[in-house]
């Protein structure tokens, strides 16, 4: 039981099959996976190996065709659509390759998005945004629109947005994919710091071996199945 409370993610025979008129396609074969609280896991693999599908299952954006996905003890497949949304809002932060910032909103407004969606009082929202802006080193850029920020700055805004609801789990899909090496390194350092200092579990999908080095554990997928799981790296660390 005590062991259970340390688990952030637990996949049991979770599989995802997509069906279409042309036939079915198995994006993720029956997979068992455990990720402990506070881990920083990089998921690697070639295109079409099932990385993004796995990330979507973990974030409750999609449901497994068979098997179960538990995140922080919640069996996602048993939650309603609304419960999954509220679960995401309170427990999961997302960071995307293309940042996905709303172009008509300032950096501060983008960061406050999920706080606003959950009707957080204005004063509390302003305090949280100020804290997050500082946390991602963007002080002074609060009123800048995404088009006025560099790629790295935009990604930091996206990370701050993901952190706004103080999530226990941060899911990052190729967070450095659109960034140059320096900006990429800054973002990885930020994720590592958050993992280390805030004890946030981070699952990061990446193609980039250099980026994966920031993680304490590397799971490699191949054709929808786990090909390797370098969990011992974390133990060694």
């Amino acid at each position: 039981m005590e062991e259970e409370t340390k688990i952030m993610i637990k996949l049991e025979k979770a599989a995802k099959v997509f069906g279409s008129e042309a036939g079915t396609f198995t994006a993720l074969q029956e997979t068992d996976l455990e990720i402990r609280k506070g881990e920083f896991v990089a998921v690697m693999g070639p295109s079409g190996s099932g990385k993004s599908t796995l990330l979507q299952l973990l974030g409750g954006l999609d449901l497994p065709t068979t098997g179960s996905v538990r995140v922080d003890g919640e069996p996602l497949e048993k939650l309603s659509e609304k419960e999954r949304t509220l679960f995401r809002r309170s427990k999961v932060g997302f960071v995307f390759q293309n940042y996905q910032l709303l172009p008509m909103m300032t950096a501060a407004e983008n960061i406050a998005l999920s706080l606003a969606a959950s009707r957080t009082p204005k004063a509390e929202m302003e305090r949280a945004v100020a804290r997050l802006i500082g946390q991602v080193n963007l002080t002074g850029k609060e009123k800048s629109f995404p088009s006025q920020l560099s790629g790295g700055q935009q990604q930091r805004v996206a990370i701050a947005r993901a952190l706004a609801m103080k999530p226990k789990l941060l899911l990052a899909d190729e967070p450095t994919g659109n960034l140059d090496r320096k900006n990429g390194r800054d973002v990885l350092e930020l994720l590592s710091r958050l993992n280390r200092e805030e004890q946030i579990t981070v699952v990061m999908v990446t193609h980039d071996r250099y980026a994966a080095e920031a993680a304490s554990r590397v799971v490699t997928l191949l054709d929808g199945a786990i090909a390797s799981d370098e969990a011992e790296k974390a133990v060694a660390k």
């Binding site: 659509e81 809002r89 309170s90 993901a162």
Partner: peptide, 16 residues
């Protein structure tokens, strides 16, 4: 559509 996806991902509900 990607914006909508992002909004839903960060916790904006269907009814919102």
């Amino acid at each position: 559509i990607r914006e909508l996806g992002m909004l839903r991902a960060v916790g904006v509900t269907r009814s919102q």
